[in-house]
Design a protein around this nucleic acid. Structure first.
Length: 479
DNA sequence: TGGGCCCTCATGCTCAGATT
DNA sequence: AATCTGAGCATGAGGGCCCA
């Protein structure tokens, strides 16, 4: 099929030459939600699933240090060595999986770079490097996605060098994997030291000479086996759990997630997607299990969950209102006068419903914000001003549909201005929808109850499952 | 029972926000 | 301004289901 000229993009009067408007978060609700999530599971992000990559991070940090000490690698603080070792590791795990799919089935799940490593292996075992591995490997690779938590736990420091907790973790790991003497400085010849020296040399040779071992090399297996992401050792697991429990709020949240009732709620909510898992577990399992009179951490968690819920209700209602404007404009060919939205028979019930629900949600949010200053663990992470703003918008928008429309478009304008971006909807006598931002569903958007943002509950359960909590293993269809 | 199609979800990249 | 970081989102691989 040939490409025809009429399908090529052409500038039209509707196609402004300036930068396109920001494509996500038109109401600026993401930032505050992230800060609320940070109270419950500090250090976690939405991409963290496999706790064993924390151990890998410690090992990679040690190897990078050894390569640096040897003076072979480039003078970059060990970054190149870390990334080189990481490529060897991912390739090593993928090789084992391709050789013995049954035994290694769960090893590469959510292992960043695994599919690129597999592709390189299939096309003739091409060495992994900058051009055929992860873009932005430093942050998107196995180390990178866990780096924030690894720092929180003291496994690595700000410069990604091995930290005190990292040493503790490595000692436990090396005992489990029968690699004693891992951290020896002298020429002890201990198995652990030999292992580290060997793969430090391999990493250095990979970096300096582009060395890439043949498929039959025994090192592939000996690298993959003790670090495979699906087998955490006993002592290693105990240390990981201790490190995660060092923050009292995170420890209490993890404890509450382990309750059978909470696990049941989590599993039952699986169909609704991750936002339903967040919402149901927090509201139906964790919140009722708190002892706010006896435990200080529980008071923090109680306020945070209530805050998260009120915030998400407000954010999703405002987004519904904004999407209604997009939908109304799309149906009118991208242009409409503001009064047409209020008069739209299909949008009227949506706006009315949003207003009605916003009144309660906005008041709830306002009451919770007032309690924040008394709880430093929440207040330190959550500036009041952005929360105040959204509560104010909720209460203003709740008055009537006209006020709602005005509030939402004003908030959108302020958000885009602060980002230095154009608006999705250009206001004026007639409002104009920017190209490619239309919303072309059959019916108007409906007020949603689902959370727009993630609160890390599924990530925490993934960690707990791999650390031995039963009932939350990632299902993979066996039996 | 085999083939094909559709849907789901993991994966990797892009872009926005934060920080220096 | 440049760099670093994180979530959103497009994409495509793979699994399941349906039909022949």
């Amino acid at each position: 099929m040939s490409l025809q000229a009429r399908y090529l993009p052409r500038a039209t009067p509707l196609d402004p030459a300036e930068d396109p408007p920001g494509s996500i978060d038109p109401l600026g609700t993401l930032g505050p939600a992230e800060r609320i999530a940070e109270v419950l599971f500090p250090g976690f992000t939405a991409r963290m699933w496999r706790p064993r990559l924390l151990t890998f991070a410690a090992v990679a940090s040690l190897v990078a240090e050894r390569v640096r000490a040897s003076g072979i690698g480039p003078e970059d603080g060990g970054l190149a060595a870390r990334l080189g070792f990481e490529r060897l590791f991912v390739s090593a795990v993928v090789r084992q999986q391709m050789r013995e799919p049954d035994k290694w089935r769960r090893a590469t799940r959510r292992l960043p770079g695994s599919s690129l490593a597999r592709r390189a292996l299939r096309s003739g075992d091409v060495p992994l490097g900058r051009n055929n591995f992860l873009k932005g490997q430093a942050i998107n690779g196995p180390f990178g996605v866990l780096a924030r938590l690894a720092r929180h736990l003291g496994i690595v420091d700000e410069d990604n060098r091995l930290g005190r907790s990292g040493e503790e973790l490595l000692l436990a790991w090396s005992t489990d994997e029968q690699l004693p003497g891992l951290l020896d400085e002298d020429n002890s010849g201990a198995p652990g030291k030999q292992w580290v020296d060997r793969f430090s040399r391999e990493t250095a040779a990979h970096l300096a000479k582009g060395q890439w071992r043949s498929p039959g090399w025994s090192g592939w297996r000996e690298l993959a086996e003790p670090l495979r992401p699906d087998h955490i050792g006993r002592q290693e697991g105990r240390v990981l759990r201790q490190l995660l429990d060092r923050d009292p709020i995170r420890a209490r949240c993890l404890e509450l997630l382990c309750a059978p009732q909470a696990v049941a709620v989590y599993r039952a909510a699986g169909d609704g997607g991750r936002s339903e898992q967040d919402r149901k577990v927090l509201l139906e399992a964790v919140l009722p299990a708190l002892s706010v009179n006896e435990r200080e951490e529980d008071r923090v968690i109680d306020l945070t969950i209530r805050l998260a819920d009120a915030y998400e209700r407000v954010a999703s209602l405002l987004e519904t209102a904004f999407n209604s404007l997009l939908w109304g404009l799309t149906r009118r060919g991208g242009q409409a006068r503001p009064v047409e939205f209020e008069a739209d028979k299909q949008l009227q019930p949506v706006f009315k419903s949003v207003c009605r629900q916003l009144a309660g949600a906005g008041q709830a949010l306002r009451n919770l914000i007032d309690r924040i200053p008394a709880v430093p663990q929440v207040g330190d992470l959550n500036p009041i001003e952005p929360l105040d703003a959204i509560a104010f918008h909720a209460q203003t928008g709740a008055e009537n549909p006209a006020r709602l429309i005005e509030t939402v478009i004003t908030r959108h304008r302020d958000v885009q201005v602060s980002k230095g971006k154009g608006m999705w909807i250009e206001p004026g006598d007639r409002w104009t929808l920017m190209p490619s931002l239309g919303l072309a569903s059959d019916g108007p958007p409906q007020p949603k109850v689902t959370y727009l943002h993630t609160f890390r509950v599924p990530n925490a359960y993934s960690f707990l499952g791999e650390l031995g909590l039963s009932g939350v293993e990632v299902p993979d269809g066996e039996t």
